[in-house]
Amino acid sequence: MYFFAIDLTQTTIDGLLFGSTYALVAIGFTLIWGLLRILNLAHGVTVMVGMFAGMLSATIIGLPFYLGILISMCAGALVGFLIDRICYRPLRAAHELVPMIATLGFWILIEEVFIKIYSKFWFRDYVPFANPFDGAGLEIGQIRLRGDYLVTLAVATLLVIILYFLIYRTRLGLAMRMIAEDHDIGSLMGVPVGRVLTTAFLLSAAYGGAAGYLLGMTANLAGPYAGSQAVVKGLFSMILGGAGSIPGAIVGGLSLGVLELQSSFLFSFAYRDAIAMLALFLVLIVRPQGLVGKRTADRI
């Protein structure tokens, strides 16, 4: 019983630490959803590009961790810029589903181009990703905290603090909050809506890039299908917590991490994803607004 309790605590802590990457992905989704009411399905592409930029800088060039993460964020932001200019800007007058489908097309396009390029250089499904914190760790009593998970949590926390500072303490954040309420009124009040939205895309994509680096580093692998997996996990976290809310994305990401690891510990690894999804489905039925989301009027 004692050892079971120890293992249970260990799994929960690992889940919380690992869930912070899911939270980062979910923040990217939730920012765009909150401001524009579109699901940016191309967000997974920024995660994938961030992961490969990180892989190139960490494994091939051998740059230190902090530089690698900056490079990943810049690479992600570049993709975010493209998403804004190709999928959102030309279509902003159209129905809100149209940009979403455009991001879908962009996702298919970039993933396929990327796989073509990838298979020219590598002949396997995954490439190794250097992990400078491999084997390092912190022992507290019987609990062991993995070094790379701790670094992940630290980076995620730092990024979340920066995000909160940006949103609640700067003019840019003020403009974003204005736009989240109403685009037209924001524009009448002199907010440069287009420019602020471009910044939001850059920001969300930079967070996606950072998440890509962290995901690759903790797994020691980088693969071309990471984007699609990140889309699923990020969306799940966002739904679990409540769409459009940043605390929701954080809570959702952390709970998804705990849920996945606990179900593989308590039941079996094979049923890990199935149990997580069943829980998600139940949450959606019982509490459609998510764990911390506010209740909004539905159309029916």
């Binding site: 279509l91 489908i101 097309g105 396009l109 396929e112």
Partner: peptide, 15 residues
């Protein structure tokens, strides 16, 4: 390059 073309086709068509 079918899938590549398909993805760009969606974006182009929507615009």
């Amino acid at each position: 390059y079918r899938m590549v073309a398909f993805g760009s086709l969606i974006v182009l068509m929507l615009i």
